[in-house]
């Protein structure tokens, strides 16, 4: 039996703009990602000192998820089984290249655990889970390009089998100076139908 499930909300961070449900909530013309995301986190009241220690991919995923989860009217006294299902193309390569630079020269060899830990794409899922106390399923997938079919199938399965009450899923890619985040929450209380056409349409909305 397929239940009625909907896309409850969505958030994007791309082209120097943060949007929630299609409405811009922050923009800044700073070309540098690090300055842009720092400013966005400040303006959007992230209030999370650990944010500034994260790598670029985690900052991007964390802020997008944080905006959605804060906006989701979740009861703070209840636990929420919200599965996290993220995907991208470049995995953690941005940080991988940085770690590689610490080991390339035997005379200047300085690998660090605090950098190395971010050489896994799913670390950003851990960061989101810690902040929002989500003891739920986490998975990170890599595709050549945005794959609505995969996200749709997994969300449908998790909700239809009651393995999760909601899913928070989408695409967070950080590579070089390019970044692209589109996350959305799937659950029982929305107006946008949960199907691959709608997921693709929202992803492609500028």
């Amino acid at each position: 039996m397929t239940k009625n499930i909907y896309i409850e909300s969505y958030c994007t961070i791309k082209n120097k703009v943060v949007s929630l449900n299609g409405t811009p909530i922050f923009s800044d013309d700073t070309p540098e990602f690090s300055a842009f995301i720092k400013q966005a986190a400040k303006q959007l009241n992230t209030n999370y000192p650990k944010f500034f220690k994260m790598d670029n991919l985690s900052k991007l995923a964390f802020l997008t998820a944080d905006i959605l989860l804060k906006n989701a009217n979740l009861s703070p006294t209840k636990e929420h089984n919200i599965a996290l299902l993220l995907s991208n193309k470049a995995s953690s390569l941005d940080t991988d290249r940085k770690h590689q630079n610490t080991i390339i020269d035997p005379d200047n060899y300085y690998p660090s655990p605090s950098l190395f830990v971010y050489t896994l794409p799913n670390i950003c899922l851990g960061e989101i889970s810690i902040k929002h106390k989500l003891l739920s399923e986490n998975s990170f997938f890599i595709f050549e390009r945005f794959n609505a079919d995969h996200l749709h199938l997994n969300s449908s399965y998790l909700l239809n089998t009651n393995k999760a009450e909601k899913t928070l899923c989408g695409w967070v890619d950080f590579d070089g100076n390019n970044y692209d985040a589109f996350l959305y929450i799937v659950g029982k209380n929305g107006t946008i139908n949960h199907n691959t056409e709608e997921i693709t349409r929202l992803y492609n909305t500028p």
């Binding site: 889970s129 810690i130 929002h132 003891l135 986490n138 998975s139």
Partner: peptide
Amino acid sequence: GSCNDANHISGPSRTGEG
């Protein structure tokens, strides 16, 4: 089943919760 500890990014939960 899969479950995050929601505890630490590089260390396991001390209670084994996940």
